[in-house]
Design a protein around this nucleic acid. Structure first.
Length: 496
RNA sequence: GGGCCAGUAACUCAGUGGUAGAGUAUCGCCCUUUUAAGGCGAGAGUCGAAGGUUCGAAUCCUUCCUGGCUCACCA
């Protein structure tokens, strides 16, 4: 740590020297005539006209020689080299400039020219400080070999990259790209839904009673009301209340919170888009998901065929739609429709599938997860789930034990979950009560009966299709990111 | 929670029982078209933490902390 202080002290010394030179290293105002990218777009015009441009940016490389220096400044649009000559900027200005470090923000006035080696550069007439950096940012160097960028001493420590994302963004340009894509994707989703007359709404994050998914919640407390509140695990039950209230198409970009394990697919807080469409069923929602994700793929990847994690993905419509039982038939070569529970349990035992609850629905779910899910590389709608694991979905008319539900998988990632919503209040009550029973017998992820929601449904809820899309995972897919931590600016980390 | 791997200077890493190293960065000097600029010199580390083994530990052992990968868990 002493060494770090030494580096910081060196920069504080420079601050003192600047003060002695009468320079304010933290002025309020900057003068900018152009973005750096604009210079490159019309390079020849700037070189010929010799007009004075005013650029701002952060010093990203620095080569100080005796009486002349080269450095690159970077703004949001790009990087440009600056050439500073003592004879041109003047003795005092050069003296001031000499106090600069990597990471400082500066304002440069000057003309655009090409250097001997042909790099478009800014010939500085005047240099002023905009912000002095007193903590050294890691130095990353790059060199072009045969047109390829070779990076030296890349800022690569994953822990540091996640904990100090500002450095990661600064030092690893791809990271910025990923997050810009994230923003674009969410924006496209909104536009897509707005165009189809969905309206965006907001529902409570702090909920007196949580529900809509099987997960453990974060608990917090309202002091004045002296009551526990839960951070929502899903928006579902509130959005359905809005459908009951007469909105026919609603969606919410929702931060949800689940108090569970973390891994490359899970962060305790994550982003979903939930939508509900009255008078639609899960087939309509499948079409909508297909449309939405192919549009995004086209826009973000420029093609419907791209690679994720070494897998070749083809998003061309129509996507495969297959029931759980047919997929199990396909990949496991067993016909679960003709098997008894006992036979299935035997199968699980033989294949080392551990079960805490030995019920029909759960067993199917487990076999599917272990043997089918990893194979779902190309976009696939997995349809027709057991009722038991889907307490909010409507049963199929011809088989009451199976519900009209689908999950959509791409590249082995579960991207979304949807169903024809259960709107029979009597059936819904029975299902929630059975969940509550499970909860009593120790299932921490089962929810309690939400009386207020049931009462709402008793007034009448139209037939409705609902969907939850895992936004973070969709961003992972389209940015070829291997971990959810790479698509969340500030992923959850342990205290250190 | 299990298994495996990693943690040494601000950054990237070498060092596997015998005086803590390199490159970059920093500081000083030289250098007026450089671009991983260059040359000479200097400073900089509780080797993730704590115990233990040993004459001696960055190195071996134990526990712990942090992270990664992976399995389990997870709608």
């Amino acid at each position: 740590m002493q060494n770090e202080n030494q580096l910081i002290n060196a920069r504080k010394e420079k601050l003192k020297r600047l003060a002695e030179l009468g320079v304010n290293p933290f002025p309020s105002k900057a003068e900018r005539s152009h973005l750096i990218a604009e210079i490159f777009e019309n390079a020849d015009k700037f070189v010929k006209s010799e007009i004075c441009v005013k650029l701002v940016g952060r010093i990203r490389s620095l080569r100080k020689m005796g009486k002349t220096s080269f450095f690159h400044i970077e703004d949001k649009s790009g990087k440009i080299q600056v050439y500073a000559r003592k004879d041109d900027v003047g003795e005092k200005n050069y003296q001031i400039f000499k106090q600069s470090d990597l990471g400082d923000f500066v304002n440069i006035f000057g003309k655009i020219f090409y250097t001997k080696s042909g790099e478009l550069s800014l010939y500085a007439d005047e240099i002023t400080f905009l912000t002095k950096s007193i903590r050294p940012i890691p130095v990353v160097k790059e060199k072009e070999i045969d047109g390829k960028k070779v990076i030296y001493d890349q800022f690569a420590d994953k822990e540091l990259r996640y904990r100090k994302r500002y450095l990661d963004l600064l030092l690893n340009p791809d990271v910025k790209e990923t997050f810009i894509k994230r923003t674009k994707i969410i924006k496209m989703m909104r536009e897509f839904l707005d165009k189809r007359n969905f309206i965006e709404v907001e529902t409570p994050i702090l909920q007196p009673q949580y529900g809509g998914a099987a997960a453990q919640p974060f608990i917090t407390k309202h002091n004045k009301l002296d009551m526990n509140l839960y951070l929502r695990i899903a928006d579902e039950l509130y959005l359905k209340r809005l459908i009951i209230g007469g909105f026919e198409r609603v969606y919410e970009v929702c931060k949800d919170f689940r108090n569970e394990g973390m891994d490359r697919m899970h962060n305790p807080e994550f982003t979903m888009i939930e939508l509900y469409q009255a008078y639609a069923d899960y087939n309509d929602i499948m079409n909508l998901v297909e449309e939405l994700l192919t549009e995004i793929a086209n826009e973000i990847c420029g093609t419907l065929q791209f690679e994720y994690d070494g897998m070749k993905i083809n998003m061309k419509k129509p996507w495969k739609r297959a029931s759980i039982s047919s997929l199990i038939q396909e990949y496991v070569k067993i016909n679960i429709e003709k098997m008894t529970l006992a036979e299935m349990l035997k199968f699980c035992k033989k294949n080392e599938i551990e079960l805490d609850t030995k019920t029909y629905g759960k067993v199917i779910d487990e076999i599917f997860k272990k043997f089918v899910e990893p194979n779902l590389i190309q976009p696939t709608f997995v349809i027709d789930f057991p009722k038991e694991v889907s307490p909010l979905a409507k049963s199929k008319p011809d088989n009451l034990e199976i519900v009209e539900r689908f999950e959509v998988f791409i590249a082995g990632l579960e991207i979304g979950n949807a169903f024809t919503e259960l709107n029979d209040p009597i059936d819904q009550r029975a299902r929630l009560e059975s969940q509550a029973e499970k909860r009593k017998s120790g299932d921490l992820e089962a929810s309690e009966v939400d009386e207020d929601f049931l009462e709402a449904m008793e007034y009448g809820m139209p037939p409705t299709g609902g969907l939850g899309l895992g936004v973070d995972r969709i961003v992972m897919l389209f940015t070829n990111s291997h971990s959810i931590k790479d698509v969340i600016f500030f992923p959850q980390m342990r205290n250190i």
